[in-house]
Simulated scan of single mutants.
Amino acid sequence: MNPFQALLDAIATIELPSEAQRVFHGRGGLFPGCEQWSLDYFTPVWLLTSFQAVSDEELAPIQTALAQRWAEIAPGLPLNLVLQTRDDARAETRLLTGEVPDPHIVEAQGARYRVHLLKGLNHGLFLDMAEGRHWVHDHVAARPGLKKVLNLFAYTCAFSVVALKAGARQVINMDMSGAALSIGKQNHQLNGLISGASFLPHDIFSSWGTISRRGPYDLIILDPPSYQKGSFVAEKDYAKLMRRLPDLLAPDGHALLCLNSPKHSAAFLQDQMKELAPELSFVARVANPAVFADVSSDRALKVLVYKAPSL
């Protein structure tokens, strides 16, 4: 039996996705032998990711299986396939067959985003955060008077897009990367959002004055990298964010704390919040998309909701 049989079985039953989504999540540990693999669809391109070096011999049956299934579910359409081989710090990406549109625009949950599969570790849209974006949309939509959202570590501003589409009046997006925020601006334009958002290419930890002056906020979203040398290290830097939350949130305001690190459990966030921001009460953990199921919830993406006290 092929050691990657679970991946081949998943490919054999794929249906044509209607939007950008993950199709196979070996990283969750539920498919022994396939822990290195994930398969995503960024319309109209398949992205196969390996977290280990992979030989052409290992790759061949996977590529063949995907080509065969694609011919069944999308007859006449070319197979566009990108391979990324990566570790925590580096990525090597190559086009195996077909082509990648430029610009490459995908849809997810009723919104449009620009993605870039052929460069960088990340691709412009985090598919595992689908339920986090859904929570933000529903939270804002249920509060027609919600005025101000602070989106820290905004990256390409997907949270901002969904918040504004749901009716938020103002979103402040802050990220060190001006290039990521530039794509964020394009994402707003793709969705017809011509006002309401600001984009600040600042180091968050040296910008608390700016952040405070623009507050208080009805919703604060924290979605930092788990580790980015010279920028953010969860073990020491998340606490700096938590301490600020009580003073930045409006009465009854909410904070969404996100962390995607298999090394840190939900308790890593919850225990520090009890110590550093005891005024805020824990509301819920947002479930991850079903396809991202993991043998341990503590290894998986953490998305926690907290609430500030009323007046």
Results as ranks from 00 to 15, higher is better:
267 A>W: 06
223 D>L: 04
32 P>I: 06
30 L>S: 00
116 H>F: 01
128 D>M: 07
278 P>H: 05
287 A>Q: 09
19 E>G: 02
28 G>H: 00
212 S>R: 13
304 L>N: 07
147 K>Y: 09
42 F>P: 01
57 E>T: 13
165 K>E: 09
127 L>H: 00
157 C>T: 12
45 V>G: 01
47 L>T: 06
127 L>W: 00
62 I>D: 00
81 L>M: 13
271 D>K: 04
201 P>D: 04
213 R>A: 10
199 F>D: 07
165 K>S: 07
229 K>Q: 09
147 K>S: 14
293 A>G: 09
13 T>S: 14
168 A>C: 15
306 Y>L: 11
87 D>L: 14
219 L>T: 00
150 L>Q: 04
182 S>I: 08
225 P>D: 12
108 A>D: 03
274 K>D: 10
27 R>A: 11
251 P>C: 13
82 V>L: 03
193 L>P: 05
59 L>I: 12
1 M>L: 12
265 S>V: 15
247 D>Y: 00
18 S>N: 07
4 F>M: 11
249 L>Q: 06
259 L>N: 03
257 L>G: 02
131 E>M: 12
149 V>T: 08
175 D>E: 13
59 L>R: 09
103 P>R: 05
115 V>Q: 02
181 L>H: 08
28 G>R: 00
146 L>W: 04
136 V>L: 03
199 F>I: 14
208 W>T: 11
49 T>I: 12
64 T>I: 15
299 R>P: 04
143 R>G: 01
300 A>Y: 08
98 G>I: 04
69 R>C: 04
285 R>M: 13
192 G>V: 15
183 I>G: 05
266 A>P: 06
308 A>Y: 06
9 D>C: 14
304 L>W: 02
71 A>V: 11
214 R>H: 06
269 L>S: 00
23 V>G: 05
199 F>E: 11
297 S>Q: 15
250 A>H: 15
258 C>F: 05
88 D>H: 04
208 W>Y: 13
295 V>T: 11
210 T>W: 03
134 H>P: 01
279 E>I: 02
237 D>H: 10
63 Q>H: 14
230 G>W: 02
39 L>Y: 07
202 H>K: 15
74 A>G: 02
280 L>E: 09
